[in-house]
Structures are given as structure tokens and as C-alpha cells.
Nucleic acid binder design. Structure first.
Length: 315
DNA sequence: GGTAGACCTGGACGC
DNA sequence: GCGTCCAGGTCTACC
């Protein structure tokens, strides 16, 4: 067994990160409520699949995984979790701008700002496409089916030496439950076809967009991961994201938030409801009204919207 | 630049 | 069990 402790830039609140959006409900994330443990099935670049158990620790998180890890695997694991929890993100200027706003008081108190990410931007783009034009239940289904159909199964490393061959099947008795699989690589999805994706993953009209994305990433034509550390202006970054089939204004804003850029608001039907009940007595409004309501927040627009203390809670 | 309609899935509902 | 309706963003054609 290997255990690591990762320290975050302060302030940091484990629960604020995992509850920042619905990502913990999407495989290969699993959340155990009683122990507040976030599990994630991670595939290292050498093909080894590890099951991580992430817990709150002093000033950061602890990560536990079975078996002995090589230096490369250990580095990749720590790098992945650091990215997932945005360990080095700094929200002090947002808190400074928000300190006089009563509806952001809670956000400051709970150190909100970090948005839980997947280890790769590819995974987050795919999941974001799965959130468009559908209900949350279908998003969960599509993600689950994609992983079940194309994800590599958990690798067992015994005594640090014997590891199961990549892509092999793990029996249920071995893992005492459903087979755990990592999120599929772009290569695995690219090797399939839009027709198969539609049939197996039930992604409907999204199949060509999903397949094209996987092909572009697998071939190296689209280097999504480089966007994680990009210094290009947010407007340009948004343009790059909008070039991806299936990514429109809502999805691009969502991905920008994941990338730590908050100049845009992901306006979906829920956002329209929130703003409508907050300032327009529940009357129908357009995306323009949402943008207008948060105009003064400038580069913190997305954060102010995302962590606002809303009156409306559904119904 | 704004708008209408098609694109799919899955859940809810009525019969 | 079957058919119908509806919710949900993106894309394209059209004005």
C-alpha cells in the first residue's frame, strides 16, 4: 500500500472542492458519504490502472492506493490529484473583490473557488459534452457506459511485481463488486466508430462529435492537455474550445471554469431559473439577463455566479 | 446578430 | 406494454 499527503495553497476546504459541482457522481469517481472518501480509478501512462482513495488531510488531502508504485506511477498519481483538486490555485483576489458582497460571504468562509477536475482535460471535455441537451441521469448513464465499454479494468499489482495485463478482464469475485475501470483513453474511443458509440454508449447525436474529438486528440492534432497550463487570454482560450464539435457557449464556459478562468457564465436552463428567481420574480429571462446580472464581477463573473448564495433552490 | 427547427435519450404519464 | 410528450444545449439555415 502507498499513501501520499498533498498540501494545498491555503485556504483550502476539501468538502468545498468535492461539492463544487456534480462531478463526484460521474464515474470513475465514487464518493463514500459516511467516510467522506472520494475514490477514483486512474490509468497511468504505462497502462497500469490504480484505484485511489482520497481523503481530507491537514492542509490538503491524503491519497491511498494498493500495491507498490514505480517512481513514474507515483509522480503521475500525485500530479493527477494535485490537478484534480487545484492544489496550487490562488483565489485571494476573488475573495478580496467579494468581501463586501453578502451573497458571497459563505463562499469566502468555506474557501470556495476550486472546481473538482478530472485528471485529463479530455475527460472533462467528454463529460461536459455529455451534460449538454440532456438530463443529469442521462449524463451519468453515458459516462458509465463509455467507461464500461472502453475503459481499462483495474490492475492488480501483487507484491509490487505481478500486474495484470492491460485490457484484460477482471472477475467480479476479485474485486468484490462491479469491475472498476478507468476513463477510456482517446485512442480506445478513436478506434471505435460513431455507430458503435451510439449503440453502446447511448450518446445519440453526440456520437460523431465524441468520436471526432477522440480521433483529433489521439492523432495529436488537438493537444487538449496543453490548455491546462496555457497563458493565452481567456477570450482566445474560449475560441479554441468553441472549435470543438459539441462545445457551445455553455460548455465552453463550464470548461473555462474548470481551467480556472471565470470570465464567462455557463448559462443553462438552471442558470436562467436561478437568476430569474433572484432578480426577475421568476419571470422568463434570456442569457443576456444572466450576463448583465454579473457584469460588474468582470474576470470573477463565473466564480461569483457559481458560488452565489442563491434564494432559489428548485421546485 | 437573432431566431427556428432538428438532433437523441430517457423519464413521466396516460391508456 | 405501448405510444406520446417533454426537457435539455448545439448546430445549421435562414432572415
Amino acid at each position: 500500500m502507498a499513501i501520499f499527503t498533498l498540501t494545498a495553497r491555503q485556504p483550502f476546504n476539501y468538502h468545498s472542492v468535492i461539492n463544487s459541482h456534480g462531478w463526484i457522481q460521474l464515474a470513475p469517481f465514487q464518493f463514500d458519504e459516511p467516510t467522506s472518501t472520494l475514490a477514483y480509478t486512474l490509468r497511468a501512462s504505462n497502462g497500469r490502472v490504480m484505484h485511489l482513495k482520497i481523503r481530507e488531510a491537514e492542509a490538503g488531502v491524503s491519497v491511498e492506493t494498493k500495491g507498490r508504485l514505480s517512481k513514474l506511477e507515483s509522480n503521475e498519481l500525485q500530479e493527477a490529484v494535485s490537478w484534480m483538486f487545484a492544489m496550487d490555485a490562488d483565489y485571494s483576489s476573488f475573495y478580496k473583490a467579494a468581501r463586501k458582497e453578502p451573497n458571497l460571504k459563505k463562499a469566502i468562509q468555506l474557501a470556495r473557488g476550486r472546481v473538482l477536475r478530472s485528471p485529463t482535460l479530455f475527460e472533462d471535455v467528454v463529460k461536459t459534452i455529455f451534460t449538454t441537451n440532456t438530463l443529469w441521469g442521462a449524463t451519468k448513464n453515458m459516462t458509465q457506459k463509455l467507461i464500461a465499454s472502453f475503459g481499462d479494468p483495474l490492475t492488480f499489482a501483487l507484491n509490487g511485481g505481478l500486474s495484470r495485463q492491460r485490457n484484460s478482464t477482471v472477475s467480479k469475485s476479485e474485486v468484490e463488486g462491479p469491475v472498476l475501470r478507468a476513463f477510456p483513453t482517446p485512442e480506445r474511443i478513436a478506434a471505435s466508430s460513431p455507430e458503435v458509440l451510439k449503440e453502446l454508449v447511448r450518446v445519440g447525436y453526440r456520437a460523431p462529435a465524441l468520436h471526432q474529438l477522440a480521433v483529433r486528440v489521439a492523432s495529436g492534432e488537438l493537444d487538449l492537455e496543453s490548455l491546462k497550463r496555457s497563458t493565452m487570454p481567456t477570450l482566445e482560450l474560449r475560441k479554441e474550445l468553441l472549435k470543438i464539435n459539441g462545445i457551445g457557449p455553455y460548455a465552453a464556459a463550464n470548461l473555462l471554469l474548470i481551467l480556472g478562468r471565470s470570465d464567462f457564465i455557463p448559462v443553462d436552463t438552471w442558470a436562467l431559473k436561478l437568476v430569474s428567481h433572484e432578480w426577475h420574480e421568476g419571470k422568463p429571462i434570456t442569457a443576456k439577463e444572466v450576463e448583465k446580472a454579473f457584469e460588474k464581477w468582470g474576470e470573477y463573473k463565473g466564480l461569483a455566479f457559481w458560488f452565489w448564495d442563491w434564494k432559489y433552490s428548485g421546485g
